[in-house]
Each structure stands twice: as C-alpha cells, then as structure tokens.
C-alpha cells in the first residue's frame, strides 16, 4: 500500500445517469474509469450528449454482459482497427439528420497506436468531426498485458519479458502532423485541466484527439490506490508532459515538470525490473523532450 500523504482522488460527481454506471467490469484503480467520468462531467457541464464507438479493448468489456450495459449512451463495439471508420459513418448520418451529439471514439493504445493507426490517420486526414479519446495504459490490458507501441522502454510485459527495448511512439506528434484542429494530453491527476480540455474539444469542430495517461494497476503491477499519484508523478517528472497542439502548429504547455525524479515513478511499479530502465537516459529524454516542447510553444504559441 502506498503511504503517499498527497494522495487525492478527485471528487467527480456521478449521477444516476452517469456515463459509466455501476456494474462495469473495470479493475479497481483503473484510470479509464476516471477518464470516462471526466468525459461525463464535461458533457453534463457543456449540456451535450454523446454516442460511443469503442474498439476491442477494456473499454468495451467495461460495458458488462448482454442484456445489461454499463454505458448510459448509445454504444457500438467496433472491430479492433475500425473505431474511427465506424465513427465516421455515425458522424455522416448525425450531420445529415441535424443531430448534435458528440461522436466519441473511446480506444486503448493498442487500438490507437497500433492496429487502428491507419484508420485513425485516414479519419484525421478527412478531418472527421470525431472526438477520439485514447486512454493510454501503455499495454494491451484486455488480453492480459502485452506490449504496444505505447509501452515505455524498460517495461516488462508478457511479450517483452526482459523489458521493452524500443521507445514509446509519439502519438501526439503523429496526430499533430495531420494538422487536426486540436490534440492534447490529459492526466487524470489534473482534473481541472482535463475538464477544460474536454470542453475545448467539444467547442472545436473536426478531428479532436485526447491522450489520457491511464494507469492500469493490473498491467503496471502497481497499487490501485496509487494510480492517480503515479500519473501525477509522470507529469511532475516530465515523463508525460501536459500540453495542447492547435491545428497541428501552435503549442501550449499546461504544466511544468517540477524536477521530480522519474526514478520514483519506476520504483512504484513492478512492471519495471530494476535493471531494465536506463535512468540517466530517461532523465535526459524527459529534459530534452520538454525543452523541445518549450521551444515550440515559444516560437508558435497556442
């Protein structure tokens, strides 16, 4: 059990009609559950509704088994690679019928960085009016914890038993390169920032991409109660910077790393074998990554 005194679970109102209802199958401490509640809160605040297109991932299993569903909105399970395509069809018919709900893809990193990337890229190129949310747990959670191209270097998964060697794909850069109107990173440890980003996304027309750093106690081999602290540490140490990219060109940084050492982040998750993470390299990559962002944000402010 973590003894971190700063542990704060954000209060998120959950009415009877909240998006993710009781009886969902998510693990305790799952970041995706908090992400869905944040989406629900923003929808309520903006007086909006949504329909969900969810590819194969924990997010669709969360609905539970027929004939019940934990989701309170119309939801379609798509094939693993197809969420952004199915959502494009939904958006087309929504618009032809003058309806106003948000069409939201709710996908894991596997369905986003890996198998669904071409589909997502094509939808972004067409600038489909979709809110695409990737809850990035850096692993294939649903199938029991295999690597994805979002898995960070050093992390042990069932298919990288000695720790992953490759770097994590920079999905925001990929999405920004499509010049979509809005792309942003989201941390469930920063609920106000997250709320504002959801609202910004609702106010923007076109393909909007939100990347939620989504703790997965089951895959990260971490304590469920430590989830929010872990992702906060990722922001503080520069492992997961919070920023927004407008039209793929203008950058805004939302939180500055406070110099926390990423070592602590690694130490609190058993997915990182002690000898698998090159701490010096990681510190340098975090520093340089943030410097690069700062340079962009100064040169092209959003």
């Amino acid at each position: 059990m973590s003894t971190d005194a700063a542990l704060v679970i954000p209060e998120i109102p959950c009415s009877e009609e909240c998006l993710l209802r009781e009886g969902n199958t998510n693990c305790g401490g799952c970041g995706m559950s908090l992400g869905l509640n944040m989406l629900a809160r923003a929808l309520a605040d903006a007086d909006q509704t949504c329909q969900l297109a969810i590819p194969a991932c924990c997010g669709i299993v969360a609905a539970g088994a027929f004939p019940t569903t934990a989701y309170s909105v119309p939801t379609i399970a798509t094939t693993f690679a197809a969420a952004a395509a199915v959502a494009s069809g939904m958006v087309a018919i929504r618009d032809l019928n003058g309806e106003r709900h948000q069409v939201v893809c709710w996908a894991g990193d596997g369905g986003t960085y890996d198998i669904g990337l071409a589909t997502l890229s094509a939808a972004a190129e067409r600038n489909e009016d979709i809110l695409y949310v990737c809850y990035d747990n850096e692993i294939y959670g649903n199938t029991g914890g295999q690597r994805s191209s979002a898995t960070p270097p050093g992390a042990r998964t069932t298919t990288t038993p000695r720790g992953k060697r490759e770097a994590k794909k920079d999905i925001i850069a990929i999405m920004a390169a499509h010049r979509i109107p809005y792309a942003a990173t989201v941390s469930i440890a920063h609920p106000d920032d997250a709320h504002r980003k959801f609202l910004t996304a609702f106010d923007t027309v076109g393909t909007r991409f939100l990347l939620i750093h989504s703790p997965c106690p089951t895959g990260w081999k971490s304590e469920p109660a430590d989830s929010v602290n872990l992702v906060r540490l990722a922001v503080r140490s520069g492992l997961f910077p919070l920023y927004e990219v407008f039209d793929g060109l203008r950058y805004r940084i939302n939180a500055r790393p406070d110099g926390a050492d990423p070592a602590e982040y690694f130490a609190r998750q058993r997915r990182f074998p002690s000898d698998a993470v090159d701490l010096d390299t990681t510190r340098r990559v975090c520093r340089e990554g943030f410097e690069r962002l700062e340079t962009l944000a100064q040169a092209f402010p959003g």
Binding site: T78, A82, A84, S88, G89, M90, A92, L96, R126
Partner: peptide, 24 residues
C-alpha cells in the same frame, strides 16, 4: 447522402456499418 473515400476496404465497411447502425 455522404460518400466517404477511405483508406482501406476494412474502413470502407467500417464507415458503411457506422452509417447503417445510425439508421441510414
């Protein structure tokens, strides 16, 4: 109506299914 020129047959049927499931 809307015709969506996509990047693959997998997505062609994906868009078609999304439209159909929306009642079109």
């Amino acid at each position: 109506g809307r015709v969506v020129a996509v990047e693959s047959e997998h997505s062609a049927m994906g868009v078609t299914m999304g439209a159909s499931a929306s009642g079109a």
